[in-house]
Nucleic acid binder design. Structure first.
Lengths: 159, 159
DNA sequence: ACCGATTGTGTGGCTAGCCAAGTAATTGCT
DNA sequence: AGCAATTACTTGGCTAGCCACACAATCGGT
């Protein structure tokens, strides 16, 4: 339906516009998010961590990275920068001094509504061109693709 | 771990799983591409530039960045690293010594088939969970979302 | 011709994100 | 108890990607 024909795309290079579409979509989406986040002195990715903390203050770093799915080093560095920015604190847990418990500061909590607004705005814009059903289908398929790709990443490429 | 199914997602934080789905899909997809590219000593993003050159050797840096849509500084640095790796050459054009003409070396050309294979493989895997119609619909909607977001990025946020 | 505007690239500086290696604390096995 | 394995996190090193600034070559108007 509609025009999926698409005039110029790197067809000649490969014949898979799906990967290309994912790449371009993610870049545009991320770019727009970055622009909105900049107004709050945040960087893309940080809002995901903060959103987890808004709902579950006091999470450990490990629980945090499990929820967002990023590399532990990425989370560590990102949290450090946010700590330097005064948005949160990190202290070793009493019962296990390896784990770092993350708590929001007042400044961090103040970002809850702005981030929620920005998130809603981003969502509203992203969804504008599609019907609700299409959006739901899109999300479902995105998860299917993600899962498929992830499963293949785990497995050794013994294909 | 193991079950990253979909039970808990940051619903409480915002109610827009679309943005989250895009983010996670892109990350998984990019990660898988990165793993395959690593075998060729490439980094994600470089294959896009190379694919353009496979079909249009002798492009200028400006034409190249226009096709992939990245920032000129990103392209500049990425090309420099690929030049250092011996994959391509950059020389100022005769008629306009500002523009840099990019040419593949033999080593660069040798990557054409490996990259095409990798791209096809990535595509095949990504598509595995969906029907052909679903894939086409997904791509079409992805482009719609991308366009919508991009249009809103251009406009000042005078909403 | 001249000099300001524009164009095409390069560089610096920042964060995101990954992998690999290192460190400290806890657990577990003997 | 003691010591190896595991766990939680940190650090270093690399590239991608952006923005802002700098620079050289070309274009344009007078």
């Amino acid at each position: 339906m509609s025009d999926i024909t698409s005039p110029e795309l790197p067809d000649a290079a490969g014949e898979g516009p799906l990967s290309y579409a994912i790449f371009q979509l993610a870049r545009a989406h991320r770019g727009h998010a970055a622009a909105m986040l900049r107004a709050m002195n945040l960087h893309p990715g940080q809002e995901l961590l903060l959103m987890q903390l808004f709902d579950h203050d006091g999470l450990t770093q490990g629980e945090l990275l499990e929820r967002v799915g990023l590399d532990h080093s990425t989370v560590s560095k990102s949290l450090r920068r946010m700590q330097d920015a005064g948005l949160l604190t990190r202290e070793p847990a009493a019962h296990d001094r390896r784990v770092m418990v993350v708590h929001l500061t007042d400044a961090g909590r103040d970002l809850k509504e702005p981030i929620a607004d920005m998130w809603r705005s981003l969502e509203k814009i992203s969804v504008r061109g599609l019907t609700a059903d299409q959006v739901q289908a899109f999300i479902g398929w995105a998860r299917v693709i993600e899962k498929t790709v992830r499963d293949h990443s785990r497995r050794p490429p013994a294909e």
